[in-house]
């Protein structure tokens, strides 16, 4: 099934400049988001998964800046727009942010103010992205709260966020993200701060909404379990690059990048045998400012090719294709 491509990222590069030097937070990232599909982006700290989300919404703050690449909304259509070319504060960009593209945060309080009621804030978001009257906005806010599974939404409208449990708060966060009726949603670790039973509920909610509204969902997480549960396609990131990309089944069954393989073996499993040891990856993720030469993973890679991986960076994966950015994967294919 060919889906409409809602967003195309091409060769995206983001740098942070500091006195210690330039940190390449993103170094040539390309992928597509498609209507009705979930792209899972997984990686450890410093891999650039959150910077990717912030770049798309043009929320990268100084000293960081986008230094290259394109972020194309509605690519290949007459309405195509490159978000990189827009001023982050422009009216057009503000209409995209929260309008075309909704954002769900790890900690919903990031998106919510403590000073206003839930209803006020959702109505505000609705008003900003539509020509609704205040009365219509109120009705829409109630509808949104009902949609995200909040019981008795008419009453909840008058609650303050701090009066809500973590799970209800994240539901309100999702309602906020949906207020502008986006067709693209970016969820950045949406369940990381939640208990496991609440996480299961929120993931089920996200999947239901996504299927019903044909949303292009970009789900950022560090949790391979969440990826296995939610994603259609998976991009594995390491130090600012996508090192592996594949449909979810293929990624778990036949991971092509040594990092993906190692990461999957290192994940503790609820299916483990008693006292089962895990395979480990030697060392730790280096600071993005101390990026190793060649393939950034080579110092931790047990399969690195003598003399090559330390010197030469493997080519990026062509967007839309399953593959690995690794000389070994190339040799096999």
């Amino acid at each position: 099934m060919v889906e409409r491509t809602s967003l195309s990222i091409r060769d995206l590069a983001v740098q942070f400049e500091s006195e210690q030097g330039v940190v390449r937070a993103l170094d040539g990232v390309s992928f597509d988001l498609q209507a009705g599909r979930t792209l899972g982006i997984v990686g450890e700290s410093g891999c650039g998964k959150s910077v990717t989300a912030r770049s798309i919404l043009r929320l990268v703050d100084r000293p960081g800046r986008i230094t290259g690449g394109r972020i194309l909304l509605d690519p290949g259509t007459p309405a195509q727009a490159d978000l990189v070319a827009l001023n982050p504060d422009s009216r057009q960009m503000r209409a995209v942010r929260g309008g075309r593209i909704g954002l769900i945060f790890q900690e919903p309080m990031t998106a919510l103010s403590v000073h206003y009621t839930v209803g006020n804030q959702i109505m505000e978001a609705v008003l900003q992205h539509s020509g609704a009257s205040p009365q219509e906005a109120r009705a829409r806010a109630i509808e949104l709260l009902r949609e995200v599974g909040i019981p008795r939404p008419e009453l909840r409208l008058d609650s303050y966020p701090f009066e809500l449990s973590g799970g209800l708060r994240q539901r309100v966060g999702i309602a906020m993200a949906l207020a502008g009726d986006p067709d693209i949603v970016i969820a950045d670790e949406p369940t990381t701060a939640l208990d496991v039973t609440t996480q299961a509920q929120i993931l089920a909610l996200l999947r239901g909404l996504q299927e019903r509204k044909r949303i292009a969902l970009m789900l950022i997480t560090h949790d391979m379990g969440v990826i296995a549960e939610m994603a259609d396609d998976v991009a594995v990131m390491y130090l600012g690059r996508i090192v592996g990309f594949a449909p979810v089944m293929e990624l778990f069954k036949a991971p092509r990048h040594p990092y993906t393989r190692a990461l999957l073996r290192a994940v503790p499993s609820i299916l483990a045998a008693p006292r089962q040891r895990l395979s480990t990856i030697g060392g730790a993720v280096p600071h993005p400012g101390l990026r190793p030469t060649g393939c950034a993973f080579h110092p931790r890679c047990t399969e690195a090719l003598e003399g090559r991986c330390a010197r030469e960076a493997p080519p990026p994966i062509p967007p839309g294709q399953a593959g690995a950015s690794c000389f070994l994967a190339e040799a096999v294919a």
């Binding site: 496991v196 039973t197 996480q199 299961a200 993931l203 949790d223 391979m224 379990g225 969440v226 990826i227 296995a228 549960e229 994603a231 979810v248 089944m249 778990f252 999957l264 994940v267 499993s269 609820i270 299916l271």
Partner: peptide, 11 residues
């Protein structure tokens, strides 16, 4: 609790 944990296996 056990049912809520997402297992790292899409199957």
């Amino acid at each position: 609790l056990l049912a809520a944990v997402p297992a790292p296996d899409p199957a």
